[in-house]
Amino acid sequence: MSEQHILSAFDRDIERIQAEIMKMGGLVEDAIRNAAKSLESRDVELADQVRAGDKAIDAMEERINEDTARLIALRAPTAGDLRLVLAVMKIAANLERIGDYAKNMAKRTRVLVDSPVVGDTASALRRMAMEVQRMLKDALDAYIQRDVELAEDVIERDKDIDQMYNALFRELLTFMMEDPRNITPAMHMHFIAKNTERMGDHVTNIAEQLIYVVTGERPGEDRPKADRTSTSKA
């Protein structure tokens, strides 16, 4: 909506919250990128930075929640404004979860540096995480530009993430069957893979929020789900 409110303070409030969401999104993108990088290059220092950085992400969520609560109390938003405020709160919550997963990846990196390398799964995981990070970037761009098509594309791409996870799941199983000494690192790798797959789901939620803001409709439940590891026998 390009039109301005009669009350310009209302516009300023909304702009501030939007800016906060973008800043938080940027922090989360960095966290994913750095966590994946530290995992592949076994860089403990970078992993520690990611873990420390999660506090800033949590603080951003707090601030966004406070600002949206105040906006609801003072401005009683309706229609498009209301949908935007509701979406902002959910997007902040999704970003916060993604940040937690990145932090968890960094934590496991610390353990993994002392374990044998499990094939090239670390590289595969990094590729998967980088794809999630690109999806997040596109979801946030879609949000700022109110681009429903781009958001739908992001939702579609979550299928690829699910497939990458399926492939990794099988690969890790194979490594564990080959040599029991692989079990500890492979289990950690598997948790990281699963968490990365969950990040993709949260990015999908963010893209869905944008569609709700623009159209007032929530996308149907028919979105592609390609993670079948929970229902198949390896």
Binding site: Q4, H5, I6, T78, A79, G80, L82, G216
Partner: peptide, 18 residues
């Protein structure tokens, strides 16, 4: 009407734009 009005004029009015 208050969550998802169809006409842009309704949206503008109830969100305080016109």
């Amino acid at each position: 009407i208050f969550t998802n009005p169809v006409d842009p004029r309704t949206e503008s009015y109830i969100t305080g734009r016109i």
